[in-house]
Each structure stands twice: as C-alpha cells, then as structure tokens.
Amino acid sequence: MLLTAEDAPDIEALIVEANDPSGPFGAKGVGETGLVPTAGAIANAVYNATGIRFKEIPMTEEKVFKALRERG
C-alpha cells in the first residue's frame, strides 16, 4: 500500500532569520535544489527517445539533430 498525504505527520514550520552575505539583500536560495536532477532526467529522456547518450548540456536542438544525422 502506498503512503498518502493522510499518512504524513503534522508539520510545524519554524522561521529562522539569518542573513546570507552572498545573497541579494541577505536572501538565501530555496528553489535551486529542485533543479539538481533536471538535466539528468532530460538527458535520459533524450537517450530513451533517440538512443544517443548526451553527456554535456545544453542539449540544443542543433546538437541533437547533428547527432541523429551522424548516426544515420
């Protein structure tokens, strides 16, 4: 049986104020962690669709098209 939202424990959010000297106006980054697996997931999707493994980003349309033409 899969867990659902009803199975999650109650969560209490705590706000901790601390400035980050490298961020704008002392702000800290939050959304970047969701981007970490994105490039790998897209590369795997392109590999599944084309059979060609790309190991560098960006995977532009031109690079994919060129790789498809070279493969034949």
Results as ranks from 00 to 15, higher is better:
residue 30 V to L: 05
residue 8 A to I: 11
residue 68 L to K: 00
residue 60 T to L: 11
residue 29 G to Y: 07
residue 8 A to K: 13
residue 32 E to H: 15
residue 69 R to H: 00
residue 36 V to R: 07
residue 17 E to Y: 08
residue 62 E to N: 04
residue 41 A to E: 06
residue 31 G to L: 11
residue 53 R to W: 11
residue 29 G to T: 06
residue 23 G to S: 05
residue 21 P to N: 07
residue 29 G to M: 09
residue 9 P to E: 13
residue 9 P to M: 07
residue 45 A to I: 00
residue 36 V to D: 00
residue 16 V to D: 05
residue 10 D to C: 12
residue 38 T to R: 12
residue 8 A to G: 10
residue 62 E to I: 00
residue 26 G to M: 07
residue 59 M to Q: 11
residue 54 F to I: 00
residue 33 T to N: 13
residue 66 K to D: 10
residue 67 A to T: 01
residue 23 G to Q: 04
residue 27 A to W: 02
residue 4 T to L: 03
residue 41 A to G: 09
residue 34 G to S: 09
residue 65 F to P: 01
residue 7 D to G: 04
residue 60 T to E: 11
residue 24 P to G: 11
residue 22 S to F: 12
residue 43 A to L: 12
residue 10 D to I: 11
residue 68 L to T: 02
residue 33 T to V: 14
residue 58 P to Y: 13
residue 67 A to F: 01
residue 62 E to D: 10
residue 71 R to C: 01
residue 44 N to Q: 11
residue 17 E to G: 05
residue 12 E to F: 10
residue 20 D to V: 07
residue 17 E to W: 06
residue 63 K to P: 04
residue 43 A to G: 05
residue 13 A to E: 13
residue 29 G to A: 12
residue 54 F to G: 00
residue 40 G to R: 08
residue 48 N to Y: 06
residue 40 G to A: 10
residue 34 G to V: 07
residue 21 P to L: 11
residue 70 E to W: 00
residue 52 I to H: 00
residue 21 P to Q: 07
residue 28 K to F: 08
residue 5 A to F: 13
residue 54 F to M: 05
residue 54 F to V: 03
residue 15 I to T: 08
residue 61 E to T: 08
residue 42 I to P: 01
residue 32 E to V: 12
residue 29 G to K: 13
residue 65 F to N: 07
residue 27 A to G: 08
residue 51 G to K: 02
residue 29 G to L: 10
residue 69 R to M: 03
residue 70 E to K: 03
residue 15 I to Y: 12
residue 13 A to W: 14
residue 23 G to P: 04
residue 44 N to T: 01
residue 48 N to E: 09
residue 32 E to S: 14
residue 47 Y to W: 10
residue 34 G to H: 09
residue 70 E to P: 02
residue 53 R to T: 03
residue 42 I to A: 05
residue 70 E to Q: 04
residue 69 R to I: 05
residue 30 V to I: 00
residue 63 K to R: 15
residue 46 V to A: 01
residue 36 V to Y: 04
residue 43 A to S: 09
residue 50 T to I: 03
residue 8 A to M: 14
residue 45 A to R: 02
residue 19 N to C: 10
residue 16 V to H: 09
residue 28 K to Y: 06
residue 5 A to K: 10
residue 31 G to M: 07
residue 8 A to D: 15
residue 66 K to L: 09
residue 28 K to R: 14
residue 56 E to P: 08
residue 26 G to P: 06
residue 19 N to W: 12
residue 44 N to H: 09
residue 68 L to A: 02
residue 59 M to N: 06
residue 10 D to A: 15
residue 25 F to H: 12
residue 52 I to P: 00
